[in-house]
Each structure stands twice: as structure tokens, then as C-alpha cells.
Design a binder for these strands. Structure first.
Length: 767
DNA sequence: AGCGATTGTCATCCA
DNA sequence: ACTGGATGACAATCG
């Protein structure tokens, strides 16, 4: 029961710490589904650092004195976590964004001609041009998010401190004191204390109490000093998406089925006007080819590459014929070449309504499918294949995205359709709307969850500029691991140093009474190293602390003669001379004068127990009493004829001494655990920010793909001709993907019906 | 004088 | 049963 309670309270406590540090709402798991076990370990694992069972188990199984098992736990945890994250990073799915510069370079000249040029490629251009309109919106939104983020960050700082205050508020033990020792003995002790205090009371001025605090502050500063939002470009997984994340984000954005086989469902892409009520099913069919239920990263990437290659091949095919006719754009222009269609190709000229609606059924025409490659350019096929874009443009950054351009592409309206209405159905308007909404919600989410505003804004900037630089912060995997390494190293350094020191002590404990045995947790050595490294050797108090807490071999202390006179009260560890004096007869036998002064000074350095020991004429040092192994300790006791009072005092001294060291270790461990938790929170925040960035990036890329699909749709539709060679009116006809992969030209009324039917399906599926 | 931090100590649990 | 580590709680001390 107690252990359970302990476990729960500790778990809750740490969970509370996490909650308060992260902010109000913690749904990191949503983004870290694959890392759930580590997260759980973060929440519950460190609690094991406080549990005794593991310690003892490890202590029993491992070399008991050598290592601090708790720190080992943390080390293992961090190491495993780091390695796991590295392994996961292997299957990152790269979303290339480096080609956007070319896109932007060509944007202006083409945008200027968008109104009169008949090219559908120009539709994209104008859309990209319009993207600038949407840009500021994003900026505003992000600035708002920044506001929210900064607030969140402030909250973090404000929430954290009280946590530690609650650490000891629970489980107050009100049990009656156990009377282990004879009351008379205790009374004697107190009397002795009183006597001793009468002599030396009020004189104890122990310098250096704040030394450790100083060192700790240094440590803490060094850790908290790392600026969370610092951006260090270079992480390669900056633009990388793991497959799982990809799929998850996709699903969150577009409700297509997991295994939606394009075009499994007959979907209508025939919205005459880009309406908000676009059937969700449309997305499925339009985008599913890109993401058809592939489970493995390889499949997804493979499909992606297939798509790219298909598109490029088709572009080459079509462009070679009549791209010049359609566009004035230079041949080398990637946009014009990529999106140009040949209006005079047989497929365009000879298409009849009948052929379009019926012939297409027999044609296995699968958009985005490898079969497209074999699609005959000329023939009875009803439709042109969707014109490809090259991989670069397809993956170009969303800096070129634009919604308005999708809704009403002016190029097709003005040029391709002589008789058609000025509008062409935009099958993707709803999609893009959804994407936008998603992004908005994303931003809201970011605000809500403390997404780093600086990172967000930088992310946006870098995306817009498409610098191709990694957007990851300084805590990108490398730094993350390094930070983890540092975190673990801090704990492990303390633990390893403790383990090394304690292991060495254990090996030689029998021969050296001054070894500290199982005390181990000598972070002080860390502090000492730090100060030595900085050349700022602390004031003596630090060394006194060092000496006191680590119970170094007096021989080592003798190397630092000035330490002799440095000490802190309440110490069991004394400078060699003090130790010697303890063994010597009372100071009264010493010579008067300076030596007496020195003796007084040393008296002041002695702890209460040491004073007691001297008053009780204990014939050996407190160090021996405390640090000697049990056998040797008993041996030592047997060598002397000691009274009951003396024996009791000795046992008390030993008990208090060991407990004091244990308390020090406990506090250090507690501090380390808190610091590690703090680091974990920072790491989690970093991960969350990274995932959010990846989501934004993916949304943009998705938006681009939608744009392209829509423009292709418009191009194809605009080039359809009936028996009389007239274009079809978008208000009367629409293209529809059939289940067998073919594309049909059907009356819009029919398409609307099917669209409505499709609209219901996903809703039902969602439920 | 009050306050927070540090440290020592006790009681208790546990292995 | 004894020993000792761990830890919550409390008190003393200090800056």
C-alpha cells in the first residue's frame, strides 16, 4: 500500500511538474504517438529514481557500492530515448522544398500576362501571384501566435517554481517518535551539547555555506541558459516527415480513407463554382493517388517518385508538340513547359461529347497512375492526362500557393473556352479551404499549446523564402541528443563520478576508514571540476564543503594545506589536524598561545557530534565511527572498553553521520531529477514545435498539390471539344473520375448528385 | 524582523 | 534482528 501510494504520488507529482511546465494543456501525445512509451517513461520513469526498490535491486545485483543505480536508470533511459529517436529519424520522409526559388523567379513575368495568356500554366502562375495576398494573412496570424506563445512561455516560468515547493507537502508523517535510545543517554547528549555550546556557542561562523548554491546556480544557469527558441539551421529532418507523421497529418487534414484506392469511388470534381460545400469525397479521389494506403515509407516515397516521373514524362510528351503555340513563355521555362498543353493535339480536337462520356469508360485512364505513361497522346481517349509538373514545382514551397487563383483561374476562362462561361468549376476550392482552416486551427493549436512563436515566425519566413535551410531549432536531433547527453551527463557525471569514487572506495574501503563507502553521490566533485576548469577556484568554503561532503582521504586533503583551517560546522569530516586533535588528549594539554588559538579555531570547526565525542572521550575519530565498515567498526569497538553512554553516542554518531550523507545524496538526487524533468519538458516542447512545423510544411505542400490538380483539371476540361469543336461549358459539364480509373465528362447535374452522395459517405465513415 | 536556502537531524520505511 | 540507504519532515542556521 505504501509503496503504491508512494509511486502514485511521485508519479502525480512529476506529472504535475510536466503539466505546469508545459502549460495548461498537454496533448503532446497527439503528436508523439510513436513516442508514447518514452513519454510515459518521462512521466513515470524518473519516479523510479525516487523509488527504493530499484535502487536496492540494482545495488544487490550490481556492484553495490560502485554505481549509483538511480542515475544509471536515468542514463539508460536517456540513452535509449536518444537512440530510439535516431533510429526513427532514419525513415524520415523528405519533402523537398529547395526548388521554390526557381518558381518565384519566374513568377512575376508570368503573372503579368496571366490575364491574356491562354495557358493553363499561367493559371498557376497567377495563383502563385495571388499567393502573396494570402501571405500577409499568415503573417498576421503568426504574429498573433507569437503573442500567445510568449505568454505561454511566461507562464512556464511562472508555473514552474511552485512545484518544487509542493514537493514535500504531502504525506506528512505524524507517527510518534520511536524511542531508540535511552532517554538518559539522550539527556546526557543534550547536556553535553549544552556544555559544549556554553563554551563555543555563538562563535561558529562558518563561511562558505553559499558556495554550493553558487555552483548550483552556475549549473542551472548553464542549463536554463540555453535558449529554447534559438534556431540553428542544419537539422536535416527539418523538412523531413516520418511516414507515420505524414499519414497522420494527411488524415487530419483530408478525410480520405486510409486505403482509398484512387479512383475507387466515383467522385465528382464538378463543382461549377468553388463552393464551401465541396464534397469531401473529392479530396479522396484527387489526392488518394498520392497517398493510397501505403503503409511503408518506401511505398509512399516510391509512389511520390512515380508520380513525379509520370508527370515529367507527360509534360515532355505534350510540350514537344505545341507548347510554343500556347504560350509565349520560353521553352526553358519550367512552368510553361510543365503545365503547357497542346490545344491542337488530336485528343483535343476530336473529342466529342459522346466519346467523352462513353469512350472514356473503356479507357483505363488513371490519373497519377503508372498507366498514364502508356496513355496514347492521340486517339479516342476522352481526356488528356493531367499535365504533370515536375517534382520541383510540385514540391516547391507553399510560398506560391494561392487560393483565389484556384477558384477562378482566369487563363482558362479567357482563352481555352471560347464559348464556355467565364468560370470553370473548381473542384478543389473546398479542399483548399479545408487546408486553410487546418492551418488556422494549427495556429490556434500552436497558440494554445505554447508553440514557440519565434520558431513559428521563423518557420514561416524560411518557408516563404524557401531558403531550404533547416528550420529546426538548436535542439534539432544533434543538439537534442547533445542536450540529452548533457542532461544525462550531468546526472551521469554525478553518478559516474560518484560511482567511480564510490567504487574505488568500495574496493579499498577495508583499508581506508576515510572512504565514504556507499555515499557516492559526489556531485561536489563536479562542482570542483567546474571551478577548476574555469580557473576560478572557489573560495575556501567551497573546498571545505568539498571536503566535508565527499569525505576525501585525509592524505588528499593534506595536499591542500590551507584546507586545514577551513571547515564548516556540522561536519563529520575534519581536516587532518583536526582529526588528529580529536584523537589526541583534550586541548587543555596543549601549549598555550597560538596553538591554543588554533585549537579553539578547530573546535569551532567541529561538528556537534565531534564535540560530543570529545566530551565523552571517544577514543577514535568520528570519521572512523561513521565510515568504517560494520565489521571493522565492531572490531574497533571491541578494542576499547567503552561505557554504555559512549557506545550509545558512537552509534548515534554513526547513524547521524550516515543519515547526513544519505540526506545529502537524496537532495542531490532530487535536484537532479527535477533538472532532468525540466530538460525533458524542454525536449518535449522542442519535439512538439518541430512536429508543428512539419505539419505546417506538409499542409503547404498539400495545398500546392491541390492547386496543381485543380489546374490540371481546368486544363483538361478546357481542351475538351464536342463534335462541333466547341468547348464544353463548365456550368453544364464536369469531369469525373470513375472507379476504374477513367475520367468521364458528364453533365453537371449528374455530377452534383454524385457529389452529394459522396459528401455523405465520409461523414458516415467518420462516425 | 522576516524570508528563503541550506544543512543537519529524526523518524520511518524498506531491502 | 541488525545494518544501512532513502526520504519526508522539522529545526537550526545563515545571508
Amino acid at each position: 500500500m505504501l509503496s503504491l501510494k508512494k509511486y502514485l504520488t511521485e508519479g502525480l507529482l512529476q506529472f504535475t511538474i510536466l503539466l505546469s511546465l508545459i502549460g495548461v494543456r498537454v496533448d503532446v501525445d497527439t503528436y508523439l504517438t510513436s513516442q508514447l512509451p518514452p513519454l510515459r517513461e518521462i512521466i513515470l520513469g524518473p519516479s523510479s529514481a525516487y523509488t527504493q526498490t530499484q535502487f536496492h535491486n540494482l545495488r544487490n545485483t550490481l556492484d553495490g557500492y560502485g554505481i549509483h543505480p538511480k542515475s544509471i536508470d536515468l542514463d539508460n533511459y536517456f540513452t535509449a530515448r536518444r537512440l530510439l529517436s535516431q533510429v526513427r529519424a532514419l525513415d524520415r520522409f523528405q519533402v523537398p522544398t529547395t526548388e521554390v526559388n526557381a518558381w518565384l523567379v519566374h513568377r512575376d513575368p508570368e503573372g503579368s500576362v496571366s490575364g491574356s495568356q491562354p495557358s493553363s500554366g499561367l493559371a498557376l502562375e497567377s495563383s502563385s501571384g495571388l499567393q502573396d495576398v494570402t501571405g500577409p494573412d499568415n503573417g498576421v496570424r503568426e504574429s498573433e501566435t507569437e503573442q500567445g506563445f510568449s505568454e505561454d512561455l511566461e507562464d512556464l516560468g511562472a508555473v514552474a517554481p511552485p512545484v518544487s515547493g509542493d514537493l514535500t507537502k504531502e504525506d506528512i508523517d505524524l507517527g510518534a517518535g520511536r524511542e531508540i535510545f535511552d532517554y538518559s543517554h539522550r539527556q546526557k547528549e543534550q547536556d553535553v551539547d549544552k556544555e559544549l555550546r556554553d563554551g563555543a556557542e555563538q562563535e561558529d561562523a562558518w563561511p562558505g555555506e553559499g558556495a554550493e548554491a553558487l555552483a548550483r546556480n552556475l549549473l542551472v544557469d548553464g542549463e536554463t541558459g540555453e535558449s529554447f527558441p534559438a534556431q540553428v539551421p542544419g537539422g536535416e529532418d527539418q523538412t523531413a516527415l516520418s511516414l507515420e507523421e505524414c499519414l497522420r497529418l494527411l488524415e487530419a487534414t483530408c478525410p480520405f480513407g486510409e486505403n482509398a484506392e484512387f479512383p475507387a469511388d466515383i467522385s465528382s470534381i464538378t463543382e461549377a463554382v468553388p463552393s464551401e460545400s465541396e464534397p469531401p469525397g473529392l479530396q479522396n479521389n484527387l489526392l488518394s493517388p498520392l497517398l493510397t494506403g501505403t503503409e511503408s515509407p518506401f511505398d509512399l516515397e516510391q509512389q511520390w517518385q512515380d508520380l513525379m516521373s509520370i508527370m515529367e514524362m507527360q509534360a515532355m510528351e505534350v510540350n514537344t508538340s505545341t507548347s510554343e503555340i500556347l504560350y509565349d513563355a520560353p521553352p526553358g521555362d519550367p512552368l510553361s513547359t510543365n503545365y503547357s498543353l497542346a490545344p491542337n493535339t488530336p485528343i483535343n480536337q476530336n473529342v466529342s461529347l459522346h466519346q467523352a462520356s462513353l469512350g472514356g469508360c473503356s479507357q483505363d485512364f488513371s490519373l497519377f497512375s503508372p498507366e498514364v505513361e502508356s496513355l496514347p497522346v492521340a486517339g479516342s481517349s476522352t481526356l488528356l492526362p493531367l499535365v504533370p509538373s515536375n517534382s520541383t514545382s510540385l514540391n516547391s514551397t507553399f510560398g506560391s500557393t494561392n487560393l483565389a487563383g484556384l477558384f477562378f483561374p482566369p487563363q482558362l476562362n479567357g482563352t481555352a473556352n471560347d464559348t464556355a462561361g467565364p468560370e470553370l468549376p473548381d473542384p478543389l476550392g473546398g479542399l483548399l479551404d479545408e487546408a486553410m482552416l487546418d492551418e488556422i486551427s494549427l495556429m490556434d493549436l500552436a497558440i494554445e499549446e505554447g508553440f514557440n512563436p519565434v520558431q513559428a515566425s521563423q518557420l514561416e519566413e524560411e518557408f516563404d523564402s524557401d531558403s531550404g535551410l533547416s528550420l529546426d531549432s538548436s535542439h534539432s536531433p544533434s543538439s537534442l541528443s547533445s542536450s540529452e547527453g548533457s542532461s544525462s551527463s550531468s546526472s551521469s557525471s554525478s553518478s559516474s563520478s560518484s560511482s567511480s569514487s564510490s567504487s574505488s572506495t568500495s574496493s579499498s574501503a577495508s583499508s581506508s576508514f576515510s572512504e565514504e563507502g556507499a555515499v557516492g553521490y559526489s556531485s561536489d566533485s563536479e562542482t570542483l571540476d567546474l571551478e577548476e576548469a574555469e580557473g576560478a577556484v572557489g573560495y575556501q568554503p567551497e573546498y571545505s564543503k568539498f571536503c566535508r561532503m565527499s569525505y576525501q582521504d585525509p592524505a588528499q586533503l593534506s595536499c591542500l594545506p590551507y584546507l586545514e583551517h577551513v571547515g564548516h560546522n556540522h561536519t563529520y569530516n575534519m581536516a587532518p589536524s583536526a582529526l588528529d586533535s580529536a584523537d589526541l588528549p583534550p586541548p587543555s594539554t596543549l601549549k598555550k598561545g597560538s596553538k591554543e588559538k588554533q585549537a579553539d579555531f578547530l573546535d569551532k570547526q567541529m561538528s556537534r557530534d565531534e564535540h560530543r565525542a570529545r566530551a565523552m572521550k571517544i577514543p577514535f575519530t568520528n570519521d572512523k565511527i561513521i565510515n568504517l565498515p560494520v565489521e571493522e567498526f565492531n572490531e574497533l569497538l571491541s578494542k576499547y572498553q567503552l561505557s554504555e553512554a559512549q557506545l550509545s553516542l558512537i552509534r548515534d554518531i554513526r547513524r547521524r553521520g550516515k543519515n547526513k550523507m544519505a540526506a545529502q545524496n537524496c537532495r542531490k538526487r532530487k535536484l537532479d531529477t527535477i533538472l532532468n524533468l525540466e530538460r525533458d519538458v524542454e525536449d518535449l516542447q522542442r519535439d512538439k514545435a518541430r512536429l508543428l512545423r512539419e505539419k505546417v510544411e506538409f499542409l503547404r505542400s498539400l495545398r500546392q498539390m491541390k492547386q496543381k490538380v485543380q489546374s490540371l483539371y481546368q486544363e483538361v476540361f478546357g481542351r475538351l471539344r464536342d463534335e462541333n469543336g466547341r468547348p464544353y461549358s463548365p456550368s453544364q459539364y464536369a469531369l469525373q473520375y470513375a472507379g476504374d480509373g477513367s475520367v468521364l465528362l458528364i453533365p453537371r447535374t449528374l455530377a452534383d448528385q454524385q457529389a452529394r452522395r459522396q459528401e455523405r459517405k465520409p461523414k458516415d465513415r467518420r462516425k
